[in-house]
């Protein structure tokens, strides 16, 4: 499978950008020249220059440094929120698929109910109650994003559980837990991982939107979304404050989507290469 992914140019391109982003996020303090929260009113709203590659914002903070620190938040929220969704989705989905009957009905009807609420407004409402901070945003994005993954793994397990190797395992005396974790999930996880990668892109967008509305990452912590929000106020005089975070979001989401599509093609034997 790895071979097929590497043969897919767009997947390699996406993975390359993601790797670069991760390196930037990890080594943020080394790359950034300034403290992202350091305010210097005298150098407010300077255009891109050698001193400030991406210019400064209305409070004179170096935009390049802020963008770099914001990438940490974007990736953190993307991966942790979706990791949570993956965990919940895989547990619920595999229980529903494996046990069937009442367990299946209860879990999947619960998932259907969750899917009835428009996701973004549900997130907004919950944030309004529990208060906006990074941790809450992650948990809420995660807890509202597991349903699709649960459906995917359930469908996989429904067909996998009748395979002969599962019967053989039962004949050997394996417990339900053993069969689910050793046979069913490893064989059925493929499509879920694809959905995970797309989900990360979605989570980064959601975080940006929340922060833009002021309900996500709170200032002075930088996030692409709240840099955008601050940029909106100075749009007429400092185009760079809004263009660069916008581009960052675009490129990141694109990279995850490319990787996701590459993964999907690699997992699907019917796609012609």
């Amino acid at each position: 499978m790895m071979k097929q992914i590497f043969r897919n140019n767009q997947a390699v391109f996406g993975a390359g950008i993601i790797l670069l982003l991760i390196l930037v996020a990890v080594f943020a303090p080394k790359i950034a020249k300034y403290d992202p929260a350091f305010i210097n009113i005298q150098s407010a709203l300077l255009g891109p220059s050698l001193e400030h590659p991406l210019g400064t914002d209305s409070l004179g903070r170096d935009l390049f440094s802020r963008m770099i620190y914001a990438s940490r938040i974007a990736l953190l929220i993307g991966f942790i929120a979706m990791g949570l969704a993956l965990g919940v989705g895989v547990i619920f989905g595999s229980l529903a698929g494996y046990f069937g009957g009442k367990t299946d009905s209860i879990i999947m009807r619960f998932a259907d109910i969750m899917l009835c609420f428009p996701r973004f407004f549900l997130i907004l409402a919950v944030i309004a109650v529990v208060g906006p901070n990074i941790f809450n945003v992650m948990v809420i994005i995660g807890l509202t994003g597991w349903m699709g993954m649960a459906r995917l793994i359930r469908a996989e397990i429904l067909s996998l559980k009748t395979r002969d190797y599962v019967s053989a395992s039962r004949a050997l005396g394996a417990s339900h837990f053993f069969i689910i974790t050793k046979h069913l999930i490893p064989n059925g996880i493929g499509p879920v991982l694809v959905s995970f990668v797309f989900g990360v892109a979605g989570a980064i967008l959601t975080e940006a939107a929340l922060s833009f509305l002021g309900l996500g990452v709170q200032p002075p912590n930088p996030s692409w979304g709240n840099i955008l929000m601050e940029g909106k106020a100075v749009l007429g005089v400092g185009w760079w404050v809004i263009i660069f975070p916008g581009l960052a979001i675009l490129i990141t989401v694109l990279a995850f989507n490319l990787l996701g599509e590459g993964l999907r093609d690699a997992l699907n034997p019917r796609v012609e290469r």
Partner: peptide, 14 residues
């Protein structure tokens, strides 16, 4: 214990 017909589906591919 049991041995099945199709040795392709009776072994976990992973």
């Amino acid at each position: 214990q049991i041995v099945f017909q199709d040795p392709y589906s009776s072994l976990d591919p992973r």
